[in-house]
Design a protein around this nucleic acid. Structure first.
Lengths: 195, 195
DNA sequence: ATATAAATCACTATTAATTGGGATTGCAAA
DNA sequence: TTTGCAATCCCAATTAATAGTGATTTATAT
């Protein structure tokens, strides 16, 4: 469900890594990386998308530049600081003495906030997809409006939103986007329909 | 080479049909139909494309309505009148007393005029393909003009001609046309270029 | 309960595209 | 050598699209 979200755990202690692994193995993230130090990030080029980093606050500040460099392709990064100090407890901090539920809750909360982020900011809504399909068939905003029984203004609004979300303005670009993203099937489109 | 061109021979005399069959069997046409009367056209529904009709002038005028009805889906029809009268000789007339070469020449001339017709009227010119490629990349007429060092008017002219030839008016339709006809490669188009 | 976002509609100004005429030049084939 | 086409350019009228804002309603998730 949460696509494109990775969890990156950086901690010197293997015991902590193993413990977190146990907590996270049933999480909704599709990839979890465990490393002992930020230097090992070099073994993971191409890290991109949504990334949750579990790291000690200390390690974070000491490796800030390196982490930023290695995660430069990330869409969004969220940090959860793992602390050994029993009196440091906050929303963006995990204390190793917290109970398991509390920790998994914090992580799942982050994951679902990412989910909201992903779905709401990048994915096209049902209506937008309908508009895009008709657009791909060569129909004008006016014609699309007539088919969907909405006003031309609304179609224009949808197109604006589609272009904002996809960052694609041109009709040809949107057509290619629709084909690539399987919103329309090029095989099913008879050229005779395009007149 | 000559695709979509049919020869339709209509003559009461089987001997003439057989004789013409001998003359035409090596012609460039991809389908030759021999019938004794225009009524038999009912057995050939869906006749379309480029059609050369060999018929006597008399039969033609007596069956004009029927022939027009049965050939209503033809893209273009050319008539060659087969005459029994030895003094009727002209470019669009075949006299059965003409020698074989003369007859095949007349038919091949018609076929190649059709070929010119087909290739020139439907295929996109070099410049049109250039314009189509840029169009597919989401560029406006103005931008295309700047890239090709021609005026926007010319780009518009090219687009008019492209739409006339392909019968496709919409940008999305032309994009799909370009993909289907390998004028652009969808794999090579990075969506980031489409912004 | 409230914030969010999807879906709807509206207006104006500006820019772009289309349509439907023309015209000219140069080349290449019949 | 004429005919046809490709390629170029031009104009005016019309239609369509885009940008920039803003507003309402309804459903959903926290």
């Amino acid at each position: 469900m949460i696509n494109n979200t990775k969890i990156l755990v950086i901690n010197k202690s293997d015991i902590i890594l193993l413990g977190l692994n146990d907590l996270l193995k049933n999480s909704l993230s599709n990839e979890i990386i465990y490393i002992n130090s930020a230097d090992e990030l070099e073994n993971y080029p191409h890290l991109m998308g949504y990334i949750i980093v579990l790291i000690s606050e200390n390690d974070f500040y000491q490796n800030k530049a390196l982490i930023n460099k290695q995660l430069k392709n990330a869409t969004k990064i969220a940090y959860l600081f793992i602390e050994l100090n029993s009196d440091k407890i906050s929303a963006n901090t995990i204390n190793i003495y917290e109970n398991a539920d509390s920790i998994t809750n914090k992580i799942n909360e982050l994951l679902s906030s990412f989910k909201r982020n992903i779905s709401n900011k990048n994915e096209l809504s049902k209506r937008e997809i309908e508009v895009l399909k008709l657009l791909t068939k060569g129909l004008s905003n006016k014609e699309i409006a007539q088919i969907l029984f909405i006003s031309t203004y609304t179609v224009i609004s949808h197109r604006k939103n589609i272009s904002e979300k996809t960052k694609i303005k041109s009709t040809s670009g949107l057509t290619i986007y629709a084909i690539i993203n399987k919103i329309v099937n090029i095989e099913e489109i008879s050229t005779s329909e395009l007149i």
